[in-house]
């Protein structure tokens, strides 16, 4: 297994006025290429913060976030934006789609940052929508889609630029059991067939079961459990 992410000596503190709260202290972690990791843990234990650090939308207080030799924590804002667009796909609990855009336009958004032709963009958008099984709704706006369908669009948007990693923050937190299972199956498929590395935060033990590794985050420490 080759390591995709190596986190070394990672600390994250928030200071509010004089008070300072520590989320992690000297955390070490490796995420391998092709992993499907679920992270569980109590509310406020720092799960979202960890995803933010992995995705380069937040910076550690100290320590290193290394992704395939790139020191993500050291990139400038501009370089970080570019790095995100090429390496990471984000999937949110509340989908975070643009309400004024159609499903296809939402999925196309990340491709506006590339030099691809309109035709090529369209091809990729339709492929991504097809993979998540929602191509037939490509002209619908988010308000015209169910929660599960919106999350599929969210996943299509995350994979359209073909990143290696998908970071999912409670992707099924807003969905009923059946819909959640469908979405999780899709994620599993992306992991197994397209070799996407997935880090998924969840509250739901059933959801965590879809992952190949389960981690429990508590008081800044990991407790690992290998799934079969």
């Amino acid at each position: 297994m080759t390591a995709l992410y190596t986190l070394t000596d990672l600390s994250k503190r928030y200071t509010r006025g004089k008070e300072s709260i520590t989320i992690f202290e000297q955390l070490d972690m490796t995420i391998d290429q092709g992993d499907f990791i679920s992270i569980m843990g109590p509310s406020g234990s720092g799960k979202t913060t960890l995803l933010n650090l992995l995705g380069g939308i937040d910076r550690p207080s100290s320590g290193a976030v290394d992704c395939e030799g790139t020191r993500v924590d050291k990139l400038s804002e501009g370089k970080l934006a570019k790095w995100r667009s090429q390496h990471v796909g984000f999937i949110f609990q509340f989908y975070n789609l643009m309400p004024t855009l159609s499903a296809a336009q939402n999925v196309e958004l990340p491709l506006l940052l590339t030099n691809l032709s309109g035709k090529e963009r369209k091809r990729r958008v339709e492929t991504a929508l097809d993979i998540v099984g929602i191509l037939d709704r490509k002209g619908h706006r988010p308000a015209q889609l169910s929660g599960g369908q919106q999350q599929r669009v969210g996943i299509a948007r995350a994979i359209v630029a073909d990143p290696k990693v998908l970071l999912c923050d409670e992707p099924t937190g807003d969905l009923d059991r059946n819909t959640a299972d469908e979405v999780l199956e899709t994620l599993q498929l992306l992991n197994r067939e397209l070799n996407k590395t997935i880090v998924m935060v969840t509250h739901d033990p059933a959801a965590a079961g879809y992952a190949s590794k389960e981690l429990h985050l508590d008081k800044g420490r990991f407790v690992a459990k290998e799934n079969t």
């Binding site: 995705g55 939308i57 804002e77 501009g78 934006a81 570019k82 995100r84 667009s85 090429q86 984000f90 949110f92 975070n96 643009m98 958004l109 990340p110 940052l113 948007r157």
Partner: peptide
């Protein structure tokens, strides 16, 4: 605000 946050997350620069 949130939509702008999403755009930036996707890689749109400041």
């Amino acid at each position: 605000t949130k939509e702008i946050g999403v755009l930036k997350t996707l890689g749109f620069r400041n």
